[in-house]
């Protein structure tokens, strides 16, 4: 799965930055390109928890792409990217890569790891959302964890179907019709052993179906894990003032301008990446005032406590929000 990010390109020297070479490109399915990346001089790449993503510098953007391996340290990273002609250009950049090209990446970053205490893992993938699930399935198979994968895709467009059949055996249930997938998922969610966790990545309607069906069947939110594409389109919001507790500054945030953008314009450096309330990079500590949370990163209890704000999307309920800056 992809998240399109609009931050400046990573410098190759950035901490955790990786200079990589394209070692292979192949078509995983119509419109889906699998790219294999290696260190220019060879050697192992950092290990990662299953479900992690690699942040790739794609021209003037940075995009996060799920790594599809089992997470063990290996000489290659693989990503699979769906070409989105109407997107922001990240997928076109990846699709134009040729063997031998150099790319800059940061990460891997983990935001969708399997729960170590789960008794059973129910994996749900829709379309290109299969990429983190391939990672989960490989790791689960490697470590002997109990799991099952439900995979819905368009007829003939199932990326990684053959590999998944190999990895999962009878634990793979593939569907070429949405109705068949949803019926089977509804039945599965109604009858899972205690201790099961469900993970879903795919189109918004699939994610909503899993979350709503699970909630209706008494699944606590802690058992339901969704890898989101991006936050929903957000309204411009009300203007407010950010008060900087430590430096004593006051930064006005007009409607339509994010708190992050206003801070940057005022010369306050805040680490950021996705700018969509997903990645967790731009978290700021709130010392007074009530944040208006619009991110997908903080948990409901963290939202309720009001002592942190993801400044790329969230705003303020009060006229002033005091930050630990």
């Amino acid at each position: 799965m992809t998240a399109v990010l609009s931050a400046p390109p990573a410098a190759a020297t950035e901490e955790g930055g990786l200079l990589l070479t394209v070692a292979g490109v192949e078509e995983a399915a119509p419109g889906i390109r699998t790219v294999t990346l290696r260190r220019p001089g060879g050697g192992l790449l950092p290990a990662y928890p299953p479900g992690s993503h690699l942040v790739l510098s794609c021209g003037d953007r940075r995009n996060a792409y799920s790594l599809t391996g089992d997470g063990m340290a290996a000489p290659e990273y693989r990503i699979s990217v769906l070409l989105c002609p109407d997107g922001d250009g990240g997928s076109a950049f990846v699709h134009a890569l040729q063997v031998g090209d150099a790319v800059v990446a940061a990460g891997p970053r983990s935001a969708f790891a399997p729960v170590s205490t789960a008794r059973h893992h129910l994996l749900v993938a829709g379309g290109i959302g299969v990429t983190p699930m391939l990672s989960h399935a490989r790791a689960a198979a490697r470590w002997g964890r109990s799991f099952e994968l439900f995979y819905g895709h368009r007829p003939g467009a199932g990326a990684h179907r053959a590999e998944l059949a190999d990895v999962c055996g009878p634990r793979l249930r593939a569907f070429e019709q949405a109705a068949g997938l949803l019926d089977a998922l509804g039945a599965a969610l109604a009858d899972q052993p205690m201790g099961t966790h469900v993970y879903v990545c795919g189109p918004a309607p699939l994610m909503a179906f899993v979350e709503e069906t699970a909630a209706g069947l008494g699944w606590p939110g802690d058992r339901v894990h969704a890898e989101r594409f991006s936050a929903a389109d957000l309204d411009p919001g009300e203007p407010f003032v950010a008060r900087l507790a430590r430096s004593g500054g006051r930064v006005p945030v007009p409607a339509g301008v994010s708190l992050l953008a206003a801070l940057e314009a005022a010369g306050v450096a805040v680490p950021s990446m996705c700018r969509q309330g997903v990645c967790g990079e731009c978290r700021l500590t709130v010392t007074a005032g009530r944040p208006l949370h619009r991110d997908l990163y903080l948990s409901p209890p963290e939202h309720a406590s009001g002592d942190a704000v993801m400044c790329c999307v969230s705003r303020s309920l009060d006229d002033e929000l005091e930050l630990d800056l």
């Binding site: 969610l189 109604a190 899972q192 052993p193 205690m194 099961t196 699944w219 058992r223």
Partner: peptide, 10 residues
């Protein structure tokens, strides 16, 4: 009882 239970159990 836990071993027999399905998710949704309290």
């Amino acid at each position: 009882q836990v071993a027999e239970a399905r998710v949704g159990w309290r």
